[in-house]
Measured scan of single mutants.
Amino acid sequence: MTYKLISNGKTLKGETTTEAVDAATAEKVFKQYANDNGVDGEWTYDDATKTFTVTE
Protein backbone atom coordinates (compact mmCIF):
# COMPACT_ATOMS: atom_id res chain seq x y z
CA MET A 1 0.00 0.00 0.00
CA THR A 2 1.01 3.59 -0.51
CA TYR A 3 1.28 5.82 2.55
CA LYS A 4 1.77 9.58 2.52
CA LEU A 5 3.66 11.88 4.87
CA ILE A 6 2.82 15.57 5.13
CA SER A 7 5.65 17.46 6.79
CA ASN A 8 4.90 20.81 8.43
CA GLY A 9 8.36 21.35 9.83
CA LYS A 10 10.14 24.60 10.54
CA THR A 11 12.82 23.74 7.98
CA LEU A 12 11.08 21.06 5.90
CA LYS A 13 7.62 21.37 4.41
CA GLY A 14 6.08 19.13 1.79
CA GLU A 15 4.86 15.63 1.05
CA THR A 16 6.46 12.28 0.35
CA THR A 17 5.15 8.75 -0.09
CA THR A 18 6.34 5.23 0.61
CA GLU A 19 5.20 1.73 -0.24
CA ALA A 20 4.81 -0.42 2.88
CA VAL A 21 3.05 -3.59 4.00
CA ASP A 22 1.32 -1.81 6.88
CA ALA A 23 1.01 1.50 8.72
CA ALA A 24 3.55 0.53 11.39
CA THR A 25 6.21 -0.09 8.75
CA ALA A 26 5.38 3.17 6.97
CA GLU A 27 5.58 5.03 10.28
CA LYS A 28 9.11 3.72 10.89
CA VAL A 29 10.19 4.83 7.41
CA PHE A 30 8.64 8.28 7.81
CA LYS A 31 10.03 8.83 11.32
CA GLN A 32 13.52 7.98 10.04
CA TYR A 33 12.99 10.36 7.09
CA ALA A 34 11.88 13.13 9.47
CA ASN A 35 14.81 12.46 11.81
CA ASP A 36 17.27 12.52 8.91
CA ASN A 37 15.86 15.92 7.92
CA GLY A 38 15.86 17.41 11.43
CA VAL A 39 12.09 17.40 11.87
CA ASP A 40 10.84 16.63 15.38
CA GLY A 41 7.21 17.29 16.13
CA GLU A 42 3.74 15.97 16.86
CA TRP A 43 2.61 13.01 14.74
CA THR A 44 -0.91 12.12 13.64
CA TYR A 45 -2.22 9.37 11.37
CA ASP A 46 -5.44 9.20 9.35
CA ASP A 47 -6.21 5.57 8.47
CA ALA A 48 -8.93 6.53 5.97
CA THR A 49 -6.43 8.39 3.77
CA LYS A 50 -3.29 6.47 4.85
CA THR A 51 -1.69 9.82 5.69
CA PHE A 52 0.78 10.68 8.42
CA THR A 53 1.31 14.31 9.40
CA VAL A 54 4.18 15.69 11.44
CA THR A 55 3.97 19.27 12.72
CA GLU A 56 6.75 21.15 14.48
Results as ranks from 00 to 15, higher is better:
A48P: 06
L12F: 15
K50A: 05
A26E: 00
Y3V: 02
E27H: 10
V39Q: 05
T18F: 11
E42I: 14
D40V: 14
I6D: 03
M1T: 15
T53G: 02
D46T: 04
Q32F: 05
T51M: 03
T55Q: 07
T51N: 01
Y33T: 04
A20H: 02
V54I: 13
D47C: 08
Y3N: 03
G38E: 06
K50C: 06
T25D: 09
K13V: 11
A26S: 01
E56F: 09
A34R: 01
T2W: 10
Y33A: 02
T17A: 07
F52A: 00
G38T: 04
A24T: 09
G14I: 15
E19I: 15
G38R: 05
D22G: 03
K50T: 03
E15R: 05
A23T: 07
K28Y: 09
E27K: 08
A26R: 00
W43Y: 02
K28L: 12
A23V: 11
A26W: 00
A23I: 07
T51P: 00
T55Y: 10
G41I: 03
L12S: 08
D36F: 08
E27G: 06
K31D: 01
Q32D: 08
E42T: 13
D40K: 14
D36R: 10
T2R: 08
A24W: 09
D46V: 04
T51I: 06
Q32P: 01
I6E: 05
F30M: 02
G38S: 06
S7N: 05
Y3A: 01
V21M: 12
D36K: 10
D46C: 09
K31M: 09
D36L: 11
T2G: 04
K10R: 12
D47P: 14
L12I: 11
T55E: 06
E56W: 11
T55K: 06
T44D: 09
E15S: 10
S7K: 04
T16I: 15
N8I: 15
V54R: 00
D46P: 00
D22R: 01
T16V: 14
T44G: 07
D36Q: 10
S7D: 04
Y45W: 02
Y33L: 11
T11P: 06
A23H: 08
T11W: 14
Y45I: 00
D40E: 13
T11R: 07
D40R: 12
K13H: 11
